[in-house]
């Protein structure tokens, strides 16, 4: 695809999506809009998680940790000093946390708050990358899984920074439906460009054969670290959006459950496929809404009654079935348009 065609395509997608964003609140009800907003945030999380897991092939279980970091950084940056003095009930906030570092009389710009959240997550990812990527093997999974627990322990044990297990609330809701959609669009375009850039190709090379990539002159440590940091950046941004759109956060929101949901999404869409991650998000979150009655005792289908928690049993069986019988997910590691192209070629012949 030539550069001209490519920019035209991006422009068309942008215009269609922005039109949809602008008019959808008039078409759909409030409930659908909430679900859609949630889907946009999860698309950001899913494509960034797919970057490290699917594109770079490093099995990692980090999203909940970085989402928590992003959410807390955004909340701390956006809450005004007076609000924080009121909110921190267990102990007074640290002066640094209370006043952050800018002019306390002006509210913090939400855009910069999101960027700082992402950058902060990225920085934490860099420090984690050093011990983890030094050794080959599956240590990344365990360290990142443990990292999620450490973040939670940190948040609970440092009430002067995070207000402990009480969490933070009344976070300014700058993340309206429209802006979440815009952030999602920007993230998709950015991540797409990374995946199909030189770095993205290096990541795929590491995924497919690390020794061969090393022999071809790919700096595998750098590539893996870069993938991990980029992934952490967008997860931090997604966390900030989540905090602002929900309005309140607590350490219990960012448990391993979040990571597990994202894992199902990217496996469903096909590891390494961006369009798969996007469609997977829509299918998964839509399915979650459709299967919601399973958790309610009033629902029943013949002799089967809804039991709280049944939904997650269904989803874990779903994940196992995908892994056992359709390991490649919806699109494998290709994109949806690759299939359309193949079909076109076949029909031309």
């Amino acid at each position: 695809m030539s550069a001209k065609k490519y920019f035209a395509l991006i422009a068309i997608v942008t215009i269609i999506f922005l039109t949809f964003l602008y008019f959808s609140p008039n078409i759909f009800g409030g409930y659908t809009i909430t679900v859609l907003g949630n889907i946009y945030i999860f698309i950001i999380l899913a494509i960034s998680y797919n970057l490290i897991n699917g594109v770079a092939g490093q099995f990692s279980l980090e999203p909940n940790g970085f989402v928590a970091i992003g959410a807390y950084v955004t909340a701390i940056l956006l809450l005004s000093p007076e609000m924080k003095s009121e909110l921190y009930m267990l102990t007074a906030p640290l002066p640094l946390i209370r006043d952050v570092f800018l002019d306390p009389s002006k509210p913090f710009n939400p855009f910069f708050a999101l960027l700082i959240s992402g950058a902060f997550s990225s920085l934490v990812a860099l420090t984690l990358a050093f011990p983890v990527f030094r050794v080959r093997g599956d240590y990344l999974a365990i360290v990142t899984l443990g990292f999620g627990f450490i973040i939670r322990i940190f948040l609970i044990n440092n009430p002067e920074i995070s207000n402990g297990s009480m969490g933070l609330d009344s976070i300014p809701g700058f993340a309206s439906y429209f802006w979440i959609g815009v952030a999602c669009l920007v993230a998709v375009i950015l991540v797409y460009n990374i995946v199909y850039s030189r770095y993205g190709r290096a990541m795929k090379a590491v995924r497919d054969d690390e020794d061969a990539a090393l022999a071809m002159g790919v700096n595998t440590f750098k590539t893996k670290t870069l993938a991990f940091m980029t992934s952490a950046f967008f997860e931090g941004v997604g966390g900030g959006l989540l905090a602002s759109s929900i309005g309140s956060i607590s350490p219990d929101q960012f448990t391993f459950m979040l990571t597990f949901q994202l894992l199902i999404i990217i496996v469903l869409g096909g590891l390494g496929s961006m369009s798969g991650a996007i469609i997977g998000t829509i299918l998964f979150l839509g399915g979650m809404e459709i299967l919601r009655p399973l958790d309610q005792a009033s629902w029943h289908l013949g002799p089967i009654h809804g039991i709280p928690g049944l939904r997650m049993v269904v989803f874990s069986i779903l994940l196992l079935l995908i892994m056992l019988f359709a390991r490649r997910g919806l699109f494998g590691n290709k994109e949806i348009w690759d299939y359309i192209k193949i079909k076109k070629q076949n029909s031309n012949e």
């Binding site: 092939g57 099995f59 874990s316 994940l319 196992l320 892994m323 390991r327």
Partner: peptide, 17 residues
């Protein structure tokens, strides 16, 4: 291997749920 690890996570979550 990544498939095996994801399956392991799936089993773990299945047993928990």
């Amino acid at each position: 291997k990544i498939s095996l690890l994801i399956t392991a996570i799936g089993i773990s979550f299945f047993l928990e749920s």
